[in-house]
């Protein structure tokens, strides 16, 4: 039986990297005594996959993990069992049974929404609010992504689906998070600051992932983004 788990990660836990989060859940699942399905082979492991790795330092209110179990009483029971063995900063928000033929979380990911908020002690920046429309109305938002081997020229515009501010200290955005063309919120913010001609160091703001979406649109149709939790 395939189960999709949605969880939040915040506070000190934002410093725990992706692989360590997997290890954390593997152990938590054992503590919660969940009847997991294991892979075959000499060293069987729990069948578990995460939707999209979250960078160290980023908080989230919408992380996803798919697991396979052999048996369970109810999603609510399992959610409670898991929350009894969590630590401060990780919280299981919801849990649902997936149809057997459902695509796994990672393959389903299309977009993710983020909030970038100035930390306490940093002043609001009015330019963010006044310039954001003009920023988004550009046809081309070039970004040079440095990799270990070379530099790649990207046009961020294609990957930004929505961007807005609701105050002078907060930016919301919905960006491409799929295996093809995913972009990071920090890249967009960096370009926005350049465009607005303000300098904001990375340490001045906190990034929070709010939700991860899949795209239910058929080929040729406009995007139809739906939270991963609402599939199946």
């Amino acid at each position: 039986m395939k189960i999709r788990v949605k969880f939040a990660k915040y506070g000190a836990m934002k410093f725990i990297g992706h692989l360590d989060m997997m290890r954390f859940f593997q152990k938590a699942i054992r503590r919660a005594d969940i009847d997991m399905k294991y892979s075959e082979g000499f060293s069987p492991h729990q069948i578990m996959s995460f939707a999209a790795p979250l960078g160290v330092g980023i908080e989230s209110r919408g992380e996803y993990m798919d697991i396979e179990v052999l048996s369970m009483t109810s999603p609510e029971d399992m959610k409670q069992a898991l929350n009894r063995v969590m630590v401060e900063g990780v919280e299981v928000l919801s849990l649902s049974i997936l149809p057997d033929q459902a695509k796994n979380a990672m393959a389903s990911v299309a977009a993710a929404s983020y909030m970038l908020k100035m930390r306490e002690g940093n002043f609001p920046i009015p330019e963010l609010k006044t310039r954001i429309r003009d920023f988004y109305n550009q046809d081309n938002i070039p970004y040079t992504k440095e990799t270990k081997k070379n530099a790649i020229e990207l046009n961020l515009k294609q990957g930004i689906y929505e961007i807005d501010t609701d105050a002078c200290d907060t930016v919301h955005m919905l960006v491409n998070a799929s295996s093809s063309g995913s972009i990071k919120p920090a890249m967009v913010f960096e370009k926005l600051c350049q465009f607005a001609n303000v300098e904001i160091p990375k340490s001045a703001y906190q990034i929070t992932r709010l939700e991860i979406y899949t795209d239910l649109a058929k080929e040729g149709e406009a995007h139809r983004f739906v939270p991963l939790a609402e599939v199946g």
């Binding site: 725990i16 063995v85 630590v87 340490s203």
Partner: peptide, 22 residues
Amino acid sequence: LALNDDILMRVEKPARYIGNEF
């Protein structure tokens, strides 16, 4: 936390310094 985010993001393996383990 005793260390601010800026420091924790700069050091190797920040999990060494945050406690909070099960």
